[in-house]
Design a protein around this nucleic acid. Structure first.
Length: 1004
RNA sequence: GGGCGGUUAGCUCAGUUGGUUAGAGCGCCUGCCUUACAAGCAGGAGGUCGCAGGUUCGAGCCCUGCACUGCCCA
């Protein structure tokens, strides 16, 4: 491969090629390590010391394992910025671990996404004029599969474009046969554990989706509405004298007494079964046990005393509608009240609604309000802000409705899920999410897991046509376990999508079989996801993981070599899946719950039951104006478009650089443009390097003798000159910093550090400083150039490895080119991540170099100030009062002479301070004076010096005051005091120099 | 109503257990097409860290109150 790269970096030309290469070459496939020997897992999340492990023999896997599960995108999904952020962070972390010589498994898959997918296909059918129910369940499901085969892979294809280094050989779909079997198994076991029950409860009902949805799927929204005040006549009021005494009581007319209640949903009054007042509310004491007549329905209903009614709210009396309100439902149970449903599953009034039957509930509301008004029961109407519940999917207003559903009794699962976080077995980053998680977990409600959908995992329960027994079983039973009847019908409901995805950390590794994968890769090391699915998914994974991966559910490979996964990943007969179709064995009956808890005897089994050791919660990506991206606002940034414009690497870098913990990301394209420029900078630095390699030694390649394990520092680098020692030290410092930033998920710090090193140190200084050594004259000794070029090549190769996790494409491209298309490894992604080598850090070189940089910058400053033409060379004089400093500067004067922007003709070291001359810059260490006849702008110079003097005096004043303060000296640590003394002595020198210079300036 | 966060340069954001002179990118101003890069180079301006108190030898950072603002839950 010729080293001729195009002048401008064109990401489009290289990225697609490498993305395809990585997939084709199966570079990120992880074989299941053979069952053997020592436990290959790293017990600590800490990284191995660089260079400490040997390469190891190939058939003995002793490397640490790193497992990460991709939050499975919906099959209906299109890649958005949130995915891109999420995947960029995961990819950086996984590539980093892989380069640290760990077994790094990133497991991809897609989620069947029950409601979303069903809606999508229904919409498609609608365009053909077909309704789902006309088609029938089986045909409909076939259509969904067809749709999935067609469109379901779109998002994964987009992922490939991002360069996501997942193991494509292990891709799963949540409706795959083995995963479906695992879901069924989990359901049956939970049922056997006594944690699943079925019953008629209030659920959130979406009439549009035609299904119950969980609390989490309801989004609350404040809307302007009305509060209707309705008065109910007390029919058996005893004490007339009390009537009308309370301000909240309805107006009494004649002998009648009323109770006034307020509601935002007057149509539900048709289902009222009581009026509740607070037991402590004195206004209503006389009415306890009395009745009111329900207007419009003429039904006599009791007045009950219940905490449901809050005295301070409204009149202190509330209507009770158990069939259409969750709180009322509970109150109804407390008082044994009937449940009267008046709204059906299509949000229409039903037969119980009497004259209003058949009306849509909103139409009914209008009629009811009108009728109440005419009949004198409507006391008033107020404007009111209602927190309305809407379906997350369809946006339809959710109606609380009575219906028969399947639930998970959540408390026992939550108990463990709380414990593992409290004990630190799962750590959150940022840490405050642990508290948010615990708050939610401590107030958790039972989880409604049934959905009235067709697309999903059908609940493995059968109803006996004869005795109505419910049989829960792994396979379709042939006869009722109670009466032996053969007429059995399976439950039509399917499971909540989050039930199956909540099992993924272990089902994706082969559970319930005792697989080697499960042994090696569970628990996952990390979960990276957004806070929006913290409760939906993360919490459920923790609950289910800690339940199923602890004894007795945890499959154990010890002592049972049979069973488990075949090498092709299919489930073979194991001891667990052998359980057959019979309902469930007596030994696993509900009473086993207690024994199960006691069997979780050791803390270790709880510690190792967690689905992942760490959770990193990333921010939300917003638009540049900090607005939430939404289709309706039209401010959605398509990552693929951004990639098209700036490249994947630049987009990834943007997301990494802006991913500071705790704040949302306001994605601004100007940043992406900046990082595209960064990529271009690297590209051109590479061009410069190749130009020199071709000219000096076209056979020069990076030293590749040492591949893995993670190697420290730069190899084959000879640090003869100051700039060599300096860049080597800077590189190692950067490598150390980047590693520690990534360790704590500080993607922003890591990105910034790499950027500063590559651009600020390597390109801005080092490349400029070595140019003279590279540009040897014709016929001259080329050995100096050869050494410089070798250094450059090895340094550059190491720098590419440092950058690779963030910018995988450009680094891969240049890296391959450096080896002339014959690299020692298939990919830079398989090379070692640089670690800091203490021996290569050199504090002295860094200090000296920074003084030289000061000197060079001072000359550049003087040139700008004196308005010297860029092409004109100028002589300078330098004074340093400390002999050691002078010696250092003299020794390295060449660096100053060779700096192009400074464009110095000659350096003369002088014996006297230059501070009192115009055209001088001073630091506490040296003075530098530019010899140039052009007059300086006296006024501007005076202004500048005065400003600087003011600043110094202000700082000096403060510092000296502190140094004179006994309390400060007594209490501040020594290094602070010493630092301050140094600052003062430096600034005193500087102040004198500036004073001198000011005095020499001609008086205006 | 309960909970969590944010407020630092014109914009978007860093700023570690409190410690010496608060940083970056973009934008802006000045000068350069210098033989890797004008997607570049060099130089520069710009901040009483939301407000008011407190703790401390020392506060952008800790505490209290206030203002504005975002999100989650009910």
């Amino acid at each position: 491969m010729p080293h001729e790269l195009p002048k401008a970096y064109e990401p489009g030309a290289i990225e697609a090629r490498w993305a395809e290469y990585w997939v084709r070459e199966k570079l990120f496939h992880v074989e299941t390590p053979p069952p053997d020997l020592s436990d290959p897992r790293s017990s600590e999340p800490d990284l191995p010391e660089p260079g400490s492990s040997d390469t190891g023999s190939p058939n003995h896997e002793s490397r640490p394992v790193f497992t990460l599960l991709l939050p499975p995108p919906n099959v209906t999904g299109r890649l958005h910025m949130g995915h891109m952020l999420n995947q960029t962070q995961m990819d950086i972390i996984v590539r980093w671990h892989r380069m640290r010589d760990e077994v790094a498994l990133w497991l991809p898959g897609t989620d069947h996404a029950g409601i979303a997918t069903q809606m999508m296909v229904e919409r498609q059918l609608a365009s053909e004029g077909i309704k789902r129910r006309e088609l029938g369940r089986e045909k409909f499901i076939e259509r969904v599969w067809e749709w999935k085969r067609h469109y379901g892979g779109a998002i994964l294809d987009q992922m490939k474009r991002l360069g996501a280094s997942v193991d494509w050989g292990r891709e799963y779909f949540t409706m795959d046969d083995n995963l479906s079997a695992a879901v069924k198994e989990a359901f049956v076991r939970l049922y056997e554990d006594g944690l699943i029950y079925r019953g008629k409860y209030i659920v959130n009902w979406c009439s549009d989706c035609g299904t119950a949805i969980s609390d989490l799927e309801v989004k609350h929204e404040d809307v302007a509405g009305k509060l209707y005040e309705i008065r109910y006549p007390v029919v058996d009021a005893g004490a007339q004298s009390e009537s009308g005494s309370g301000s909240g009581l309805g107006p009494s007319s004649g002998e009648a007494e009323f109770i006034t209640v307020a509601t935002t949903r007057p149509e539900t009054m048709l289902g009222d079964v009581a009026i509740a007042v607070n037991p402590a509310d004195e206004r209503y004491l006389h009415l306890h046990g009395k009745h009111v007549m329900l207007p419009l329905m003429n039904r006599k209903i009791p007045i009950i005393a219940d905490e449901l009614a809050q005295p301070e709210f409204g009149t202190g009396a509330v209507k009770v509608t158990p069939a259409h309100d969750a709180n009322d439902f509970e109150a109804g149970q407390r008082h044994n009240l009937p449940q009267i449903e008046v709204i059906d599953e299509h949000s229409k009034m039903n037969v119980n609604a009497g004259p209003y039957a058949g009306l849509d509930r909103l139409a009914a509301r209008a009629r009811i309000v009108e009728d109440l008004s005419t009949q004198g029961f409507l006391v008033g109407t107020k404007d009111y802000t209602i927190a309305i519940g809407k379906c997350d999917r369809s946006g339809t207003i959710v109606e609380p409705r009575l219906s028969t559903q399947w639930f998970i009794k959540i408390a026992p699962l939550a108990k463990r899920a709380i414990e593992v976080v409290e004990k630190g077995y799962i750590r959150f980053t940022p840490e405050n999410y642990a508290q948010i998680y615990l708050n939610w977990m401590n107030n958790i409600h039972d989880w409604c897991i049934s959905r009235q959908l067709w697309w999903g995992h059908r609940i493995p329960a059968w109803y006996c046509g004869q005795c109505k027994e419910v049989v829960v079983a792994r396979e379709a039973p042939t006869a009722c376990t109670k009466c032996g009847g053969a007429k059995l019908e399976q439950e039509t409901d399917v499971l909540d999508t989050w039930f199956s995805s909540g099992l993924l950390p272990f089902t994706a590794l082969g559970w319930p079989a005792a697989t080697r994968d499960l042994d090696v890769f569970y628990p996952n090391q990390l979960m990276i996801t957004g806070f929006d699915i913290l409760f939906f998914w993360v919490a459920r994974m923790i609950m289910l993981g800690c339940w199923f991966m602890a004894p007795p559910h945890k499959p154990s490979s010890r002592g049972s070599s049979s069973g488990g996964l075949d090498s092709d990943g299919s489930v073979s007969d194991g001891p667990i899946l052998n359980a057959t179709g019979a309902a469930f064995s007596v030994g696993h009956s509900h009473s086993s719950l207690k024994s199960k808890s006691s069997r979780l005897e050791s803390d270790d089994s709880l510690r190792d039951s967690v689905p992942f050791r760490e959770v990193y919660i990333h921010a939300l990506v917003r638009d540049a104006e900090r607005q939430k991206m939404s289709k309706t606002k039209g401010n959605v940034l398509d990552p693929i478009e951004v990639i098209g414009q700036y490249g994947t690497d630049a987009t990834r870098f943007t997301l990494a650089a802006m991913a500071a913990p705790g704040t949302d990301i306001a994605f601004s394209e100007s940043r992406t443009a900046g990082y595209r420029n960064f990529a271009n900078k690297i590209w051109n630095a590479a061009r410069f390097m190749f130009m020199n390699v071709d000219r000096i030694d076209s056979g020069l390649r990076p030293d590749s003798r040492k591949g893995h394990p993670a190697r420290a520092g730069v190899t084959s680098f000879s640090d003869a000159t100051l700039e060599d020692r300096w860049i080597l030290s800077r590189f190692n410092r950067a490598a150390g910093d980047v590693n520690s930033s990534l360790k704590t998920y500080r993607f922003d710090e890591a990105a910034a550090r790499i950027y500063d090193f590559f651009w600020g140190d390597l390109c801005d200084w080092y490349l400029e400083l070595i140019k003279p050594r590279l540009l040897f004259d014709e016929g001259a000794d080329s050995s100096v150039a050869r050494v410089a070029c070798t250094n450059l090549v090895n340094l550059f190769e190491a720098s590419l490895r440092l950058l690779h996790p963030v910018m995988p494409f450009i680094t891969e491209e240049i890296w391959h080119a450096m080896y002339d298309g014959k690299p020692p490894l298939k990919s830079i992604a398989l090379a070692a991540y640089p670690a800091r080598d203490e021996k290569q850090t050199n504090f002295e070189a860094e200090t000296e170099m920074s003084i030289l940089q000061d000197l060079i910058v001072s000359v550049r400053n003087l040139r700008a100030e004196l308005k010297v033409e860029p092409k004109v060379k100028i002589p300078v004089e330098v004074f340093a009062h400390e002999p050691a400093m002078r010696a250092m500067l003299e020794k390295n004067a060449n660096a100053v002479l060779l700096d192009r922007p400074a464009n110095v003709e000659k350096i003369t070291f002088v014996e006297q301070s230059l501070a009192n001359m115009a055209g001088t810059r001073s630091t506490s260490r040296f003075d530098v004076h530019a010899i140039y006849e052009k007059k300086i702008d006296v006024a501007a110079e005076r202004e500048r010096l005065k400003k600087e003097l003011e600043k110094i005096e202000k700082q000096l004043g403060g510092a000296q005051a502190r140094l004179g303060d006994k309390q400060f000296l007594g209490k501040a640590p020594a290094h602070v005091v010493d630092g301050l003394r140094k600052q003062v002595s430096d600034q005193v020198i500087l102040r004198e120099k500036i004073d001198a210079q000011l005095k020499e300036l001609p008086v205006p």
